[in-house]
């Protein structure tokens, strides 16, 4: 799985999100999407630090699947 989330990927993405929000004026609609993603990343890191990483990955995988389904419905 090439998209496997790692600590460094998660931290980097999280910090990019924070920077984006800090530096650009992000619309509230986009903001909620970004914050949702940030919350995922934070949850991933903190759970993985405490060894519940596998569960987190499963949750994230489910979540992504759902998102894909929803996007599929839109088109």
């Amino acid at each position: 799985m090439e998209n496997e989330l790692t600590y460094s990927k998660a931290a980097a993405e999280l910090e990019v999100i924070v920077k984006e929000i800090e530096e650009e004026n992000i619309a509230v609609d986009a903001l909620s999407e970004k914050v949702k993603r940030a919350a995922q990343l934070i949850r991933f890191c903190r759970s993985k630090l405490r060894g519940t990483g596998e569960e987190v990955e499963k949750v994230l995988a489910d979540l992504e699947e759902k998102t894909r389904e929803e996007e599929g419905e839109q088109f």
Partner: peptide, 20 residues
């Protein structure tokens, strides 16, 4: 590492509050 994540979380929290 966790502190770094938590700092991002705090900043995000403040930014969201301000944005809202």
């Amino acid at each position: 590492f966790e502190d770094r994540i938590l700092e991002a979380q705090r900043r995000l929290g403040r930014l969201c509050e301000k944005a809202l």
